[in-house]
Design a protein around this nucleic acid. Structure first.
Lengths: 196, 196
DNA sequence: TTATTTTAATTGAACGGTCAATTAATAAAA
DNA sequence: TTTTATTAATTGACCGTTCAATTAAAATAA
């Protein structure tokens, strides 16, 4: 079985298995065994590639954050108006779910854990600030700076809040779509209320 | 030490100790030992009064939910306008923090756990729906029903979102106050945008 | 090519520690 | 004495980590 160049493959397998396990049984009940069994690998391999359970958890969060980041970057690659950009931001933050229900529960678990884990909290802070500054950047092209900062705070709160309530209520895909629409419409209203 | 009628006292002691433990070390690291030690009692007493750790966790969540509920009821006891009532709802949902920082982290932990615990999810659902219907009830006196429902969804999202972002960023009391102000102002704008 | 050595990849049993729960004993109050 | 409240000790299951042993691909030598 030992083939050369297995590392990136195994790392991804284990990260995927972690997402599955956390989604199915929760971060609390996720063990080295529940992960390695899902990946079809032995338990020892986790320490070998990630230094331990904690390292794998953190790598999994980084994977989720990176997905969100690149999802937004790819959408805003081509030139677009500030309003379009704002809509892309909303879409990116909601799309985390549609593609994979497993990510959703995982995200929530990690948020909670970040209150007691410095590493995770650092990652969470970067993510929260990115949403805010992405929004603020686009709003600034449409209104005075102070208004833009305020709009970004409100929009970020609305996006996270509607997302959270949808997740916690175990909403259907249709209800998620509705939440996304509400968020988009709210961002639009923020533009028109302060726009030239 | 054995005195008669200890039950309600012990139960509250253990619930308080659970809140402290979850706030300090997280739900993950909260054990019957970390709880009982904080309460100055033995670990066996938890099974005696709550049937086990899980029973104590659920009782603690019910305690938090009940606090939020009665906090709102007491504020809206005296007659007040719909607008005042809406502000009270916002205040009640933010006041969870100010009085006790410990409750904040706890709440977040329980939300995450509720995705994998049916009992907790039931409690969470009741709470989420109460916020929505309280808001909808007041909005309905100020605007047509469909507008009111929509406003309630948006306001609930904004309240939870701003609260969540403040908690996750470990905001100072001052920043919490600012988040509360933003939420209140948003509710006001919802009123004036659809009001007569 | 074939035989041999080296190396990367992986396993899974063993270990020390901790968990929730239970039990039997104890102490005060009724 | 009986009942209630509580503890301290114990149990068995399970946790994450470690590590000696194993496997098979890759590299080298013949």
């Amino acid at each position: 079985m030992p083939k050369v160049g297995m590392e990136p493959i195994r790392r991804q397998q284990l990260i995927n298995a972690t997402l599955e396990s956390v989604a199915e049984v929760g971060l609390h009940a996720t063990t080295i065994n529940s992960i390695s069994k899902r990946a079809g690998l032995s338990s020892g391999i986790i320490s070998h590639y990630f230094g331990g359970k904690q390292g794998l958890i953190e790598a999994t969060v980084r994977f989720l954050l990176n997905n969100l980041k690149t999802s937004l970057i790819s959408k805003t690659q081509q030139p677009c108006s500030a309003e379009e950009r704002l809509m892309f931001i909303v879409e990116a933050n909601f799309s985390v779910i549609q593609q994979q229900t497993s990510s959703t529960k995982t995200w929530l678990s990690f948020w909670a854990q970040s209150m007691h884990d410095e590493q995770l909290h650092r990652l969470q802070t970067v993510n929260a600030k990115r949403l805010y500054s992405n929004l603020a950047f686009s709003f600034k092209t449409l209104m005075p700076e102070n208004d833009a900062k305020r709009a970004a705070k409100l929009a970020a709160g609305m996006i996270d809040g509607l997302w959270l309530r949808a997740v916690l209520s175990k909403a259907t895909e249709q209800e998620f779509k509705q939440a996304e629409q509400l968020a988009k419409h709210y961002v639009s209203s923020l533009i028109s209320s302060c726009g030239a």
